[in-house]
Protein backbone atom coordinates (compact mmCIF):
# COMPACT_ATOMS: atom_id res chain seq x y z
CA UNK A 1 0.00 0.00 0.00
CA UNK A 2 1.50 3.22 -1.19
CA UNK A 3 -0.94 5.71 0.22
CA UNK A 4 -0.79 7.80 3.35
CA UNK A 5 2.59 9.18 2.47
CA UNK A 6 2.02 12.18 0.32
CA UNK A 7 -0.05 10.80 -2.44
CA UNK A 8 -2.82 13.22 -1.81
CA UNK A 9 -0.53 15.96 -2.99
CA UNK A 10 0.55 14.45 -6.29
CA UNK A 11 -1.71 14.40 -9.27
CA UNK A 12 -1.27 11.03 -10.91
CA UNK A 13 -1.07 7.99 -8.73
CA UNK A 14 -0.87 4.29 -9.38
CA UNK A 15 -3.44 2.98 -6.98
CA UNK A 16 -5.20 -0.21 -6.01
CA UNK A 17 -8.85 0.07 -4.98
CA UNK A 18 -7.94 0.48 -1.33
CA UNK A 19 -5.54 3.33 -2.17
CA UNK A 20 -8.26 4.95 -4.23
CA UNK A 21 -10.66 4.98 -1.29
CA UNK A 22 -7.91 6.45 0.85
CA UNK A 23 -7.07 9.09 -1.76
CA UNK A 24 -10.69 10.13 -2.17
CA UNK A 25 -11.07 10.51 1.60
CA UNK A 26 -7.87 12.57 1.80
CA UNK A 27 -8.94 14.71 -1.10
CA UNK A 28 -12.40 15.44 0.13
CA UNK A 29 -11.40 16.06 3.73
CA UNK A 30 -8.89 18.61 2.52
CA UNK A 31 -11.39 20.23 0.17
CA UNK A 32 -14.38 20.29 2.49
CA UNK A 33 -13.98 20.96 6.19
CA UNK A 34 -17.38 19.56 6.99
CA UNK A 35 -16.29 16.03 6.04
CA UNK A 36 -15.58 13.90 9.11
CA UNK A 37 -14.71 10.24 9.36
CA UNK A 38 -15.75 7.88 12.15
CA UNK A 39 -15.74 4.19 12.91
CA UNK A 40 -13.97 1.37 14.71
CA UNK A 41 -10.17 1.33 14.45
CA UNK A 42 -10.20 3.93 11.68
CA UNK A 43 -8.03 6.53 13.43
CA UNK A 44 -4.76 5.46 15.02
CA UNK A 45 -4.87 2.12 13.28
CA UNK A 46 -5.92 3.55 9.92
CA UNK A 47 -8.63 0.93 9.51
CA UNK A 48 -8.26 -2.83 9.60
CA UNK A 49 -7.72 -2.75 5.85
CA UNK A 50 -5.81 0.61 6.02
CA UNK A 51 -8.49 2.45 4.04
CA UNK A 52 -8.33 5.42 6.39
CA UNK A 53 -4.55 5.37 6.94
CA UNK A 54 -2.99 8.79 7.44
CA UNK A 55 -6.26 10.66 7.91
CA UNK A 56 -5.96 11.11 11.65
CA UNK A 57 -2.40 12.45 11.42
CA UNK A 58 -3.44 14.85 8.73
CA UNK A 59 -6.83 16.03 9.90
CA UNK A 60 -6.73 15.41 13.63
CA UNK A 61 -8.87 13.48 16.05
CA UNK A 62 -11.77 15.91 15.86
CA UNK A 63 -12.40 14.99 12.26
CA UNK A 64 -11.17 11.39 12.37
CA UNK A 65 -12.88 9.64 15.23
CA UNK A 66 -12.23 6.20 16.64
CA UNK A 67 -15.60 5.35 18.10
CA UNK A 68 -16.49 2.89 20.81
CA UNK A 69 -17.44 -0.51 19.42
CA UNK A 70 -21.08 0.05 18.51
CA UNK A 71 -22.55 0.02 15.04
CA UNK A 72 -25.97 1.35 16.03
CA UNK A 73 -24.10 4.26 17.59
CA UNK A 74 -21.90 4.85 14.55
CA UNK A 75 -24.81 4.96 12.13
CA UNK A 76 -27.09 6.91 14.45
CA UNK A 77 -24.40 9.46 15.22
CA UNK A 78 -23.71 9.88 11.53
CA UNK A 79 -27.34 10.91 11.13
CA UNK A 80 -27.00 13.35 14.00
CA UNK A 81 -23.81 14.83 12.59
CA UNK A 82 -25.34 15.12 9.14
CA UNK A 83 -28.32 16.95 10.62
CA UNK A 84 -25.99 19.64 11.90
CA UNK A 85 -24.17 20.36 8.68
CA UNK A 86 -21.33 17.86 8.86
CA UNK A 87 -20.72 15.28 6.19
CA UNK A 88 -19.93 12.11 8.07
CA UNK A 89 -18.25 9.22 6.32
CA UNK A 90 -18.76 6.36 8.74
CA UNK A 91 -17.08 3.00 8.41
CA UNK A 92 -18.68 -0.29 9.35
CA UNK A 93 -15.67 -2.56 9.74
CA UNK A 94 -17.25 -5.42 7.79
CA UNK A 95 -20.62 -5.57 6.10
CA UNK A 96 -21.44 -8.56 8.29
CA UNK A 97 -21.66 -6.17 11.24
CA UNK A 98 -23.92 -3.60 9.57
CA UNK A 99 -27.12 -5.03 10.98
CA UNK A 100 -27.33 -2.82 14.09
CA UNK A 101 -27.24 0.10 11.63
CA UNK A 102 -30.34 -1.10 9.81
CA UNK A 103 -32.75 0.53 12.18
CA UNK A 104 -31.07 3.88 11.55
CA UNK A 105 -30.87 3.38 7.80
CA UNK A 106 -34.46 2.28 7.46
CA UNK A 107 -36.21 4.33 10.12
CA UNK A 108 -34.22 7.55 9.88
CA UNK A 109 -31.47 8.07 7.30
CA UNK A 110 -33.61 7.00 4.37
CA UNK A 111 -36.67 8.93 5.40
CA UNK A 112 -35.46 12.11 7.08
CA UNK A 113 -35.91 14.18 3.93
CA UNK A 114 -39.36 12.74 3.29
CA UNK A 115 -40.47 12.95 6.88
CA UNK A 116 -39.56 16.63 7.23
CA UNK A 117 -40.61 17.58 3.71
CA UNK A 118 -37.01 18.51 2.98
CA UNK A 119 -36.26 20.51 6.13
CA UNK A 120 -33.78 17.99 7.49
CA UNK A 121 -31.62 15.88 5.23
CA UNK A 122 -29.03 13.23 5.74
CA UNK A 123 -25.88 13.66 3.67
CA UNK A 124 -23.91 10.76 5.09
CA UNK A 125 -21.89 7.89 3.72
CA UNK A 126 -21.70 4.49 5.34
CA UNK A 127 -18.70 2.61 3.96
CA UNK A 128 -18.28 -1.12 4.44
CA UNK A 129 -16.02 -3.75 2.89
CA UNK A 130 -17.99 -6.75 1.70
CA UNK A 131 -17.95 -9.99 -0.22
CA UNK A 132 -16.15 -13.31 -0.13
CA UNK A 133 -12.97 -14.80 -1.46
CA UNK A 134 -10.39 -13.75 1.12
CA UNK A 135 -10.63 -16.79 3.41
CA UNK A 136 -12.10 -14.71 6.19
CA UNK A 137 -13.89 -16.01 9.29
CA UNK A 138 -17.66 -16.37 9.62
CA UNK A 139 -19.65 -13.14 8.99
CA UNK A 140 -16.82 -11.55 7.00
CA UNK A 141 -17.77 -12.70 3.51
CA UNK A 142 -21.44 -12.02 2.82
CA UNK A 143 -22.91 -9.80 0.13
CA UNK A 144 -26.17 -8.38 1.39
CA UNK A 145 -26.51 -5.36 -0.88
CA UNK A 146 -30.08 -6.36 -1.76
CA UNK A 147 -31.18 -5.97 1.86
CA UNK A 148 -29.94 -2.40 1.82
CA UNK A 149 -31.18 -1.66 -1.66
CA UNK A 150 -34.64 -2.49 -0.39
CA UNK A 151 -34.60 0.56 1.88
CA UNK A 152 -36.33 3.62 0.40
CA UNK A 153 -34.25 6.78 0.23
CA UNK A 154 -30.87 5.05 0.47
CA UNK A 155 -28.37 4.96 -2.37
CA UNK A 156 -26.26 1.85 -2.69
CA UNK A 157 -23.01 2.23 -4.59
CA UNK A 158 -20.39 -0.41 -5.33
CA UNK A 159 -17.14 0.35 -7.16
CA UNK A 160 -15.33 -2.29 -9.16
CA UNK A 161 -12.03 -0.59 -9.95
CA UNK A 162 -9.67 1.93 -8.36
CA UNK A 163 -10.79 4.74 -10.66
CA UNK A 164 -14.45 4.10 -9.98
CA UNK A 165 -13.80 3.77 -6.26
CA UNK A 166 -12.15 7.18 -6.31
CA UNK A 167 -14.74 8.94 -8.43
CA UNK A 168 -17.79 7.31 -6.93
CA UNK A 169 -16.71 7.81 -3.33
CA UNK A 170 -16.23 11.51 -4.02
CA UNK A 171 -19.74 11.66 -5.48
CA UNK A 172 -21.12 9.71 -2.56
CA UNK A 173 -19.62 12.15 -0.07
CA UNK A 174 -20.86 15.14 -2.07
CA UNK A 175 -24.32 13.69 -2.51
CA UNK A 176 -27.00 15.38 -0.40
CA UNK A 177 -28.59 12.03 0.54
CA UNK A 178 -27.42 8.97 2.45
CA UNK A 179 -25.22 6.57 0.52
CA UNK A 180 -24.14 3.09 1.53
CA UNK A 181 -20.82 2.59 -0.21
CA UNK A 182 -19.82 -1.06 -0.36
CA UNK A 183 -16.22 -1.89 -1.12
CA UNK A 184 -15.44 -5.29 -2.64
CA UNK A 185 -12.59 -6.36 -0.43
CA UNK A 186 -11.53 -9.28 -2.63
CA UNK A 187 -10.22 -6.68 -5.13
CA UNK A 188 -9.01 -4.17 -2.53
CA UNK A 189 -5.45 -5.01 -3.52
CA UNK A 190 -6.19 -6.07 -7.08
CA UNK A 191 -4.92 -4.43 -10.23
CA UNK A 192 -3.42 -0.96 -10.02
CA UNK A 193 -4.81 1.85 -12.09
CA UNK A 194 -3.53 5.32 -12.77
CA UNK A 195 -5.72 7.73 -10.86
CA UNK A 196 -5.85 11.43 -11.49
CA UNK A 197 -6.08 12.75 -7.98
CA UNK A 198 -7.86 15.90 -9.02
CA UNK A 199 -11.14 15.52 -7.17
CA UNK A 200 -13.03 14.61 -10.32
CA UNK A 201 -16.14 12.70 -9.32
CA UNK A 202 -17.97 10.07 -11.35
CA UNK A 203 -21.73 10.11 -11.77
CA UNK A 204 -23.94 8.19 -9.39
CA UNK A 205 -27.07 6.44 -10.66
CA UNK A 206 -25.26 5.41 -13.83
CA UNK A 207 -24.02 2.09 -15.08
CA UNK A 208 -20.59 1.95 -16.68
CA UNK A 209 -20.21 0.06 -19.92
CA UNK A 210 -16.77 -1.47 -19.50
CA UNK A 211 -16.66 -3.28 -22.80
CA UNK A 212 -18.87 -2.94 -25.83
CA UNK A 213 -20.31 -5.96 -27.57
CA UNK A 214 -23.18 -6.92 -29.76
CA UNK A 215 -24.08 -10.54 -28.98
CA UNK A 216 -24.72 -10.67 -25.26
CA UNK A 217 -24.91 -8.34 -22.27
CA UNK A 218 -23.05 -9.41 -19.13
CA UNK A 219 -24.19 -7.40 -16.16
CA UNK A 220 -22.43 -7.35 -12.82
CA UNK A 221 -20.89 -5.20 -10.07
CA UNK A 222 -18.20 -5.26 -7.43
CA UNK A 223 -15.59 -8.00 -7.34
CA UNK A 224 -17.50 -10.20 -9.81
CA UNK A 225 -16.67 -7.71 -12.54
CA UNK A 226 -13.23 -9.40 -12.73
CA UNK A 227 -14.72 -12.81 -13.53
CA UNK A 228 -17.24 -11.20 -15.86
CA UNK A 229 -14.48 -9.52 -17.87
CA UNK A 230 -12.56 -12.80 -17.96
CA UNK A 231 -15.67 -14.52 -19.24
CA UNK A 232 -16.01 -11.89 -21.95
CA UNK A 233 -12.45 -12.71 -23.05
CA UNK A 234 -13.27 -16.41 -23.24
CA UNK A 235 -16.43 -15.69 -25.19
CA UNK A 236 -14.47 -13.49 -27.59
CA UNK A 237 -12.30 -16.51 -28.41
CA UNK A 238 -15.52 -18.25 -29.39
CA UNK A 239 -16.45 -15.30 -31.60
CA UNK A 240 -19.09 -14.08 -29.21
CA UNK A 241 -18.95 -10.37 -28.63
CA UNK A 242 -19.98 -9.59 -25.07
CA UNK A 243 -20.93 -6.23 -23.67
CA UNK A 244 -19.92 -5.86 -20.02
CA UNK A 245 -21.86 -3.49 -17.82
CA UNK A 246 -20.83 -2.49 -14.31
CA UNK A 247 -24.02 -1.50 -12.51
CA UNK A 248 -22.02 0.57 -9.94
CA UNK A 249 -25.06 2.27 -8.40
CA UNK A 250 -27.28 -0.57 -7.26
CA UNK A 251 -30.04 1.77 -6.18
CA UNK A 252 -31.50 3.79 -7.82
CA UNK A 253 -30.85 1.39 -10.66
CA UNK A 254 -29.94 2.74 -14.10
CA UNK A 255 -32.18 0.43 -16.11
CA UNK A 256 -31.92 2.65 -19.15
CA UNK A 257 -28.32 1.60 -19.84
CA UNK A 258 -29.08 -2.05 -19.13
CA UNK A 259 -32.21 -2.13 -21.27
CA UNK A 260 -30.62 -0.41 -24.21
CA UNK A 261 -27.76 -2.91 -24.10
CA UNK A 262 -30.05 -5.92 -23.86
CA UNK A 263 -32.28 -4.51 -26.59
CA UNK A 264 -29.26 -4.57 -28.89
CA UNK A 265 -27.77 -7.90 -27.88
CA UNK A 266 -30.95 -9.83 -27.11
CA UNK A 267 -29.15 -11.85 -24.47
CA UNK A 268 -28.52 -11.12 -20.83
CA UNK A 269 -26.51 -12.76 -18.07
CA UNK A 270 -26.53 -11.19 -14.62
CA UNK A 271 -23.67 -12.05 -12.27
CA UNK A 272 -23.48 -11.49 -8.52
CA UNK A 273 -22.04 -13.07 -5.40
CA UNK A 274 -25.11 -12.45 -3.30
CA UNK A 275 -27.75 -15.10 -2.66
CA UNK A 276 -29.90 -15.85 -5.68
CA UNK A 277 -33.47 -15.19 -4.63
CA UNK A 278 -34.86 -11.72 -3.88
CA UNK A 279 -31.59 -10.28 -5.11
CA UNK A 280 -30.52 -7.30 -7.19
CA UNK A 281 -30.24 -9.81 -10.03
CA UNK A 282 -33.88 -10.74 -9.52
CA UNK A 283 -34.82 -7.08 -9.93
CA UNK A 284 -32.77 -6.56 -13.07
CA UNK A 285 -34.11 -9.76 -14.58
CA UNK A 286 -37.68 -8.77 -13.79
CA UNK A 287 -37.28 -5.39 -15.41
CA UNK A 288 -35.57 -6.82 -18.46
CA UNK A 289 -38.46 -9.21 -19.02
CA UNK A 290 -41.02 -6.51 -18.31
CA UNK A 291 -39.50 -3.92 -20.56
CA UNK A 292 -37.56 -5.69 -23.23
CA UNK A 293 -39.19 -9.07 -23.57
CA UNK A 294 -39.68 -8.83 -27.30
CA UNK A 295 -35.98 -8.11 -27.84
CA UNK A 296 -34.87 -11.18 -25.92
CA UNK A 297 -33.48 -14.03 -27.97
CA UNK A 298 -33.15 -16.28 -24.94
CA UNK A 299 -34.26 -16.30 -21.31
CA UNK A 300 -32.24 -14.13 -18.95
CA UNK A 301 -29.60 -16.09 -17.05
CA UNK A 302 -28.32 -15.45 -13.56
CA UNK A 303 -24.98 -16.58 -12.14
CA UNK A 304 -25.19 -16.06 -8.39
CA UNK A 305 -24.49 -17.31 -4.94
CA UNK A 306 -26.97 -19.76 -3.46
CA UNK A 307 -29.83 -19.29 -1.02
CA UNK A 308 -27.61 -20.77 1.66
CA UNK A 309 -25.42 -19.22 4.26
CA UNK A 310 -22.13 -18.19 2.80
CA UNK A 311 -20.11 -21.37 3.44
CA UNK A 312 -17.08 -20.99 5.67
CA UNK A 313 -14.02 -20.40 3.60
CA UNK A 314 -13.00 -24.01 2.90
CA UNK A 315 -16.03 -24.23 0.62
CA UNK A 316 -16.45 -20.63 -0.41
CA UNK A 317 -15.30 -21.24 -3.96
CA UNK A 318 -18.34 -23.44 -4.46
CA UNK A 319 -20.45 -20.42 -3.68
CA UNK A 320 -18.67 -17.67 -5.60
CA UNK A 321 -19.43 -17.18 -9.30
CA UNK A 322 -16.49 -18.09 -11.52
CA UNK A 323 -15.63 -17.08 -15.06
CA UNK A 324 -16.46 -20.63 -16.17
CA UNK A 325 -19.91 -20.35 -14.63
CA UNK A 326 -20.51 -17.12 -16.51
CA UNK A 327 -19.28 -18.59 -19.78
CA UNK A 328 -21.50 -21.64 -19.31
CA UNK A 329 -24.57 -19.49 -18.68
CA UNK A 330 -23.73 -17.25 -21.60
CA UNK A 331 -23.41 -20.25 -23.92
CA UNK A 332 -26.78 -21.50 -22.74
CA UNK A 333 -28.43 -18.39 -24.14
CA UNK A 334 -27.14 -19.37 -27.55
CA UNK A 335 -28.37 -22.94 -27.33
CA UNK A 336 -31.81 -21.93 -26.22
CA UNK A 337 -32.36 -19.30 -28.89
Amino acid sequence: MTVAKNLDESENVDAVLLDAVNLALHYEMARDESVVVLGEDIGSNGGVFRATAGLKDKFGFKRVMDTPLAEALISGMAIGMASQGLKPVAEIQFMGFIFPAFEHLFCHAGRMRNRTRGRMTCPMVLRAPFGGGIHAPEHHSESTEALIAHIPGIRVVIPSSPARAYGLLLSAIRDPDPVVFLEPKRIYRGAQQLIQNNGQALPLDKCFTLREGKDISLISWGASISETLQAADVLAQKNISAEVIDVATIKPLDMRTILSSVATTGRCVIVHEAARSFSVGSEISAQVSEKCFLNLLAPVQRVTGFDTHMPYFKNENYYLPSAQDIVASALKTFKES
Binding site: F306, D307, T308, S322, Q324
Partner: peptide
Protein backbone atom coordinates in the same frame (compact mmCIF):
# COMPACT_ATOMS: atom_id res chain seq x y z
CA UNK B 1 -38.16 -25.88 -3.85
CA UNK B 2 -34.41 -25.68 -3.70
CA UNK B 3 -33.71 -28.66 -5.91
CA UNK B 4 -32.94 -26.37 -8.80
CA UNK B 5 -30.14 -24.70 -6.87
CA UNK B 6 -28.68 -28.07 -6.05
CA UNK B 7 -28.60 -28.80 -9.77
CA UNK B 8 -26.89 -25.48 -10.44
CA UNK B 9 -24.30 -26.35 -7.81
CA UNK B 10 -23.86 -29.80 -9.33
CA UNK B 11 -23.06 -28.27 -12.71
CA UNK B 12 -20.69 -25.81 -11.11
CA UNK B 13 -18.81 -28.54 -9.28
CA UNK B 14 -18.48 -30.49 -12.51
CA UNK B 15 -17.02 -27.44 -14.23
CA UNK B 16 -14.59 -26.92 -11.36
Amino acid sequence: NMNEQLDILGDKVERM
